[in-house]
Each structure stands twice: as C-alpha cells, then as structure tokens.
C-alpha cells in the first residue's frame, strides 16, 4: 500500500467518522426536539404538560394557526376570521373545520372533532377555560406587541418540538426589521385605523402595527401612549374626523371594516392620504398580525406602500392584499 493509498484510506475513515458523528448528533437533536413530556406556559401563567404531540389542534386564535404553518404543522380547524377563513394563510375552507367565531366557538364541534389542544386568545377564551379543558388542553395568548409575537411563536413551537425553528423565525424577522429600518427614509406620517360605522379608532405606536411604522422610519400620527406601558391593551383610542384632519397623515392603513364614514364625510377629501390616493383598506391579517407569516407579510406590504420605489411589492395571496380606499363610489 502506497502512502497515497494510506492517505486516501485515512480520509475515508475521517469522512465516515464525521458522517457518523453528524448523524448521531442530529439524531440526538431530533430525539431531543421530539422529547416529551413538554411543559409550556401560556399567558395566563398556567403550565400545560404535553406527554405527546397534539394531533387535533383547534387554532381559535389565528396566530396559533399562523405559527403552526410557519413550523410545518397544521391545525384541524380555525375560528372564522371576520366571517371567513384566513385568506392570507391560503387555507381552503374545505380542508379545515370552521369552529365559529373566536369569541363564540362551537363547543359541540370542538368535542365532536376530538380536539386535544385549543390555542386561544386570553381575553376571549380564558374566561371559558373550564369548558375548554373538558375537551382538551388549552393555551391562551395575550398578544399585543412585537415582544408578545416572539414569545407566542416560541411557546407554540415548543409544543411541537420546534423551538429551534421558532428562534430562527424570530431572528430572521428581527434582521428584516433592522434591514428595512436602514433602507427607509424618514419624513412621512401614517396612521392605523379601524372603522365601525361612525366610530373610528386609531393605534398608538405601542401596538405591533404602530411599532412597524417606527421600524420604517415613519411617524405614527397618533404618537405614543405611556399608559400602554402599564396596560398593554391600551394601544388605541377613538378618533373623530376633525382630529384626523388635524393629524393629516400621509398614509392611512384602515382595517377592512364597514360603514360609509369615509365616503360621506367631506373632511376626508382634505386629508393628505386621500388627496394623494394613499389610503388603503388592508387585509384581515392586520387584525391578528402576530404570527410569523402575518407579521412578515404585513411589514413588507407596509414597507412597499410607504416606499414603493425602495421596497418591492411582496407576494400576498389574492384577497389579503391592501386595496385603495375609495373616497367616492
């Protein structure tokens, strides 16, 4: 055997050893990831123990369905989302059970479908925890700001042994925020609103939507609310047309809602956003924007709408895209 052959032999052994070691490490890691029992604490500070991976998950909180999709899992059903399935997740209604409204889920259906985990929203579902736990396990989240989004992603992913994937999703989104922050120029103002008939609400910077404006170097016309530091739900307040005229935002993001307020009120035609045709009805995902898919989609769409020349239009499923808000029929 020549030295050359000996060297080749050594290389082969090393390669085999490395491969075997890698396989062992990965197998161990995988075994670790799938290791049960897993204990997950939700936003009620209740620790829930999972002895196995849940099979029939009802994601009443769409954020739960969003996180599951992002980590390669899927629920058996969701709550109807503004009266429809979550379009942005491209869920086909026939493939998922519609468990009813988030605040009024169909308990009979949940029982019938042998749901073993319900992912809910604390405000709406926690008061009925006793009813839920008769059916399966319950986790509820109280998600308002960007930190809540990261925490919920970690928490839900942990149930499925996907903590690393969650960390990866959160890290890449943080990178995206920083990257876009550097590329966006200051000088514009915008506002987030929802409109129910004659009643309009606008969001402070403390909500996730408002914080996205900060990352995009855009002034939130509503500004900040220090009370939100004490009560994180205090992220929006009613606003009247007169105040909106005074704030005069360059861009309006309005959640899809009903009523003819915009169309009827002559004041709106004087607001910069309307004058420059930069008032938008945004998709329903903006109302529960904390999932990894939604937050990514929303942030990129906002960036595009605020800086169309700098940021490309993201790929958003039909029906979930922002559309121009018409002042006149």
């Amino acid at each position: 055997m020549t030295d050359k052959h000996k060297l080749e032999g050594m290389k082969m052994k090393i390669k085999t050893l490395i491969s075997a070691s890698l396989f062992a490490v990965l197998s161990y890691g995988s075994a670790l990831a799938a290791e049960y029992p897993v204990i997950v604490a939700d936003d009620r500070n209740i620790a829930v123990t999972f002895t196995e991976k849940p099979k029939n998950v009802a994601a009443l909180n769409i954020v739960g369905a969003d996180i599951m999709k992002a980590i390669g899992e899927k629920p058996i059903g969701v709550s109807s989302y503004g009266g429809e399935m979550p379009v942005y997740l491209e869920y086909d209604a026939k493939d998922y059970v519609d468990f009813g409204l988030l605040h009024q889920p169909n308990f009979e259906l949940l029982t019938e479908q042998n749901v073993d985990l319900v992912i809910g929203l604390t405000a709406y579902n926690a008061p009925f925890a006793e009813e839920f736990v008769k059916i399966g396990k319950l986790l509820t989240y109280d998600i308002m700001n960007i930190e809540d989004s990261f925490r919920a992603t970690n928490s839900v992913a942990k149930i499925f042994g996907q903590s690393e994937k969650a960390a990866e999703l959160n890290d890449s989104f943080k990178e995206l925020l920083n990257d876009y922050h550097e590329k966006s120029k200051p000088g514009q103002s915008a506002i987030f609103m929802w409109v129910y008939g004659d009643l309009m609400y606008a969001y402070y910077t403390e909500g996730i939507q408002g914080s996205f404006l900060q990352f995009l170097n855009t002034k939130n016309a509503m500004g900040s609310n220090l009370n939100a530091l004490i009560d994180k739900h205090d992220i929006a307040r009613p606003i009247d047309p007169e105040e909106l005229l005074e704030l005069n935002p360059d861009v309006i993001f309005s959640f899809r809602s009903e009523g003819n307020t915009y169309k009827n009120n002559p004041v709106f035609s004087k607001i910069n956003a309307f004058k420059n045709k930069r008032a938008y009805h945004v998709g329903l995902q903006y109302t529960q924007p904390h999932g990894p898919i939604a937050r990514d989609m929303i942030f990129k769409e906002m960036a595009h709408l605020l800086f169309p020349k700098t940021f490309e239009k993201p790929n958003i499923p039909a029906g979930a895209e922002a559309v121009a808000l018409k002042f006149v029929d």
Binding site: V195, G197, S257, E258
Partner: peptide, 16 residues
C-alpha cells in the same frame, strides 16, 4: 361581523 358598524349605529349618535 359585517353588522358591527350597525351595532354602533343602533346605540344612537350624532357623531360624524
């Protein structure tokens, strides 16, 4: 959900 706007109208208001 599409009747949310009506819910506020049903309260009775002069606003707007």
């Amino acid at each position: 959900e599409s009747t949310n706007a009506i819910y506020f109208w049903l309260i009775g208001s002069f606003s707007g």
